[in-house]
Simulated assay, not measured.
Amino acid sequence: MSNSAIQIKTDRPRIEELLAPYRDVIGDDYTGYRNHVLRTVTYAMYFLDSDLDVEPTVETALAYHDIGLWTDRELAYLEPSEAIVVADNEKHGWGLDPDLLQGIIHWHHKIFRYRGPHERVIEACRKSDWIDASMGWIRKGMSRSNVAAVEAAFPNEGFHKSLLRLAKDYGGSTIVGGMRVTRSIVKW
């Protein structure tokens, strides 16, 4: 799989629709976060062999996976992000599996392989976030050329710098914030 070229969909209207209501609260970080979402979805769908049955769930969960950073202004943002996606799923009648939506968000920073319910999808999303969070240093079997192609299609736009800024803003300093965020969101 890692040697095949990655399919890059530059037009993902579902993601645009999902993020639109949060544009103002995300503010200047919007384009960076949007592109992070697009990169992670692209990697996840590659690991899922472009399975269209799970694509709406992957797009939805990954659109919301870090949203609590801005909506709740919290470094412990997993639970707020999970609550928002479940509430919006119900409110808008999307009919997506709430356990799977929550699982993708809850486990996306897990260090070691996820094993459990919905393993295939959650593991694909977990690997995709590690690739993007590490800016391709951790590739989880993805080729360098695929990472480069995805990063070229969806530029960083300051996303990783915004994470450092938010850690400092919410934690008092980059170091203290970084320690707090690591304690609250990283799973073994």
Rank of each mutant, 00 (worst) to 15 (best):
D97N: 15
R39T: 10
D66W: 06
A83V: 11
D66L: 03
Y30L: 07
V86N: 04
V25D: 09
G27N: 12
S50M: 13
A76N: 15
V85R: 01
I26K: 03
K91D: 13
Y30T: 13
Y46G: 08
D51Y: 09
Y22V: 04
G68Y: 06
A61H: 05
Y64R: 05
D72N: 15
R73I: 03
N89F: 05
T57V: 15
G32H: 10
S81Y: 07
H65I: 12
D28V: 14
D99H: 14
V54L: 03
E74L: 03
V58S: 00
T42C: 05
D53L: 10
V25E: 11
V58C: 01
P80T: 06
P56S: 00
Y22L: 10
K91N: 13
E82W: 03
A61K: 02
H65Y: 05
R34W: 14
V25N: 06
K91I: 03
D51F: 09
P98E: 01
D24S: 14
V86G: 02
I67D: 01
W94V: 00
D24N: 13
V25Q: 11
Y46V: 02
E90T: 14
P56Y: 04
W94E: 02
I84A: 03
P56G: 00
L96M: 15
V54M: 04
E55I: 07
Y46N: 12
H92A: 12
D66G: 00
G68R: 06
G32R: 03
S50E: 15
T57M: 01
T71P: 09
V37P: 06
W70K: 07
G32K: 06
L62E: 10
R23S: 13
D72V: 08
G32Q: 06
V85T: 10
T42K: 03
G27F: 10
D49C: 02
Y33Q: 05
W94G: 00
E82S: 01
Y33W: 11
A61W: 09
L62W: 04
E55V: 10
H92P: 04
D49F: 05
D29F: 11
A83G: 06
L96F: 15
A87I: 07
P56L: 00
E55R: 14
T42N: 06
R34K: 15
A83P: 06
L78P: 02
Y33M: 05
K91Q: 15
P98D: 00
A44G: 03
D72P: 08
P80E: 06
R34N: 11
V86M: 02
L48E: 12
L78H: 10
Y43P: 08
L69D: 03
L96G: 03
D72W: 06
I67F: 03
N35D: 14
Y46T: 10
S81D: 07
I67S: 02
K91G: 01
